[in-house]
Design a protein around this nucleic acid. Structure first.
Length: 462
DNA sequence: TTGACTCAACATCCTTTGCTACAA
DNA sequence: TTGTAGGTTTCCATGTTGAGTCA
């Protein structure tokens, strides 16, 4: 179909407006386009922009494009002193390019995801917005991009509001200021892309025109299955290399070891009582915790009756007992003795245990309550070797540049593969040719054994 | 500029056994 | 008889972060 009356595309607050066109033209035949009765216009979520343009080109439908707010080659765009990429980096870039310049690259922490992104940016040569989960990462990206391209780099978030052809932002700011940038970037890069499927954060991907998209992560899998939304938001997984495929050459050799500890008779008794109380409530209410929304149902029921409140308290109590079993402390002491002089990171699920360990063994601790300055200082001292042991809960799982350690001790944690892979990643930075080791300390005869099984369902732990 | 605060968003929280109604 | 899908209410508490406000 060829026509002299082109359809008109424009960007409007996270959507593409489609107007004009030949008489009787069916706008809803365009990908993603719906009639909006509030404004009597036709529009699509901005993410459909690429499909709409491709459809128009394929069907030879004339169109004018006032939506796209970027030029192809921003001035001064030159990669400075490019170094040779590793084979896995070159492959990742090539595959992403061949898959239509859309998709997610999965690489373990410390194997150069940022450089993959830099190479993709250079190849695509479009204004790019880089989205990160934390201000810390935003600053790291800012430094790398500035050095890589030698251009002014914009920052959005953390007190900055400066758009440039290359801009780094946070998921929060990307969402809040979407209307201001949604039509201005041809390439979107999502660092730690497993955050993107959150309902609010996803808006950044939905409301942007960017035809080219790159997601980066070490573990796309989410506990809620949200990774299923990633193909729509950024594209499919186009390249994936696992820890086991890169250990030895690019990552440290490692082994993982599960250590069981017994509860004391008193702990066992208290654990059994608490667990029985909570399980009884679940059984009486006919709640199937493994079923869909099982946990939500438990929470819902538990908040309505005194019985339920007690059951929830009992649930938390049995959790607390398994997490802080006294045997874990003796095991920790032994492990630290066995690895005296080595750099060790201790992980827990809760802050109370972190502080307990810090008090007992006079070990520096980091939680979300640790002030930024102090946190930085502790990490620097850990890096310089002044501190050889560091205890933390969940803060260091992701998004912080943590100096390499060769020993990891997981005293407690969630059942998610993501957390376990992230923690393993903390000891895999090449650090001499020492073999790294990740210990997982599990309270025997408790539900922790199942949590442990669950988080080890990743071949890196087989 | 800094720091203390509040608020919003996100993630996890579970699974060791079986019931019931309905379809094949 | 055997096999299997089935279910619904937005959220108790803790950990973590970013944005925004105010002194």
């Amino acid at each position: 179909m060829s026509t002299d009356a082109p359809i008109a595309l424009s960007y409007d607050r996270g959507t593409v407006l489609v107007a004009q066109g030949p008489p009787g033209f069916d706008f809803t035949a365009l990908p993603g386009v719906l009639f909006d009765p509030r404004t009597s216009t036709h529009r699509a979520q901005a993410r459909h922009y690429r499909a709409i343009v491709e459809h128009c080109l394929r069907e030879k439908i004339a169109y004018t494009d006032a939506a796209r707010g970027w030029e192809n080659k921003p001035a001064g765009w030159k990669l400075q002193a490019a170094r040779e990429p590793y084979p896995h980096q070159a492959e990742a870039v090539a595959t992403w390019w061949q898959t239509g310049r859309r998709g997610t690259v999965v690489l373990p922490t410390g194997t150069g995801k940022t450089f993959v992104a830099v190479l993709c940016m250079e190849k695509v040569s479009r204004p790019a917005l880089i989205v990160t989960p934390t201000i810390d990462l935003m600053n790291q990206w800012y430094g790398v991009i500035k050095d890589s391209f030698g251009v002014e780099v914009g920052l959005l978030g953390g007190g900055y509001y400066d758009f440039q052809p290359i801009t780094v932002t946070t998921y929060d700011s990307a969402y809040i200021h979407l209307e201001r940038w949604g039509g201005k970037y041809g390439l979107l890069i999502f660092d730690e892309v497993h955050h993107l499927p959150g309902p609010t954060y996803a808006m950044a991907a939905i409301g942007s025109l960017a035809p080219f998209r790159l997601g980066l992560t070490a573990t796309p899998e989410r506990a809620d299955g949200g990774e299923l939304a990633l193909p729509e938001l950024v594209g499919p997984i186009v390249y994936r290399k696992e820890i086991t495929e890169l250990s030895g050459e690019y990552l440290a050799e490692y082994r993982t070891k599960r250590v069981y500890v017994d509860l004391t008779p008193e702990e066992e008794d208290a654990y059994r009582k608490a667990r029985e109380e909570y399980r009884r409530f679940v059984a009486e209410r006919g709640i199937s915790l493994g079923g869909p929304n099982g946990w939500q149902k438990f929470i819902f029921e538990a908040s309505r009756t005194p019985d339920g409140v007690a059951a929830l308290r009992a649930y938390r109590e049995q959790k607390r007992i398994e997490r802080s079993a006294s045997g874990k402390f003796t095991t920790l002491e032994k492990l630290l003795r066995d690895h005296a002089g080595e750099r060790a990171l201790i992980f827990t699920a809760d802050n109370a245990t972190v502080y307990e360990i810090a008090r007992r063994y006079l070990v520096p601790a980091i939680t979300h309550q640790t002030k930024i300055k102090e946190r930085k200082q502790i990490l620097e001292r850990f890096h310089s070797g002044e501190y050889s042991i560091l205890v933390t809960s969940q803060v260091l799982n992701e998004g912080v540049d943590v100096p390499a350690a060769s020993v990891g001790i997981v005293l407690s944690g969630s059942g998610t593969i993501k957390e376990n892979v992230q923690r393993l990643g903390r000891i895999l930075r090449k650090y001499g040719d020492k073999q790294a080791v990740l210990y997982e300390v599990v309270a025997k005869g408790t539900a922790e054994e199942f949590t442990s099984d669950r988080r080890r369902q990743h071949h890196a732990f087989q």
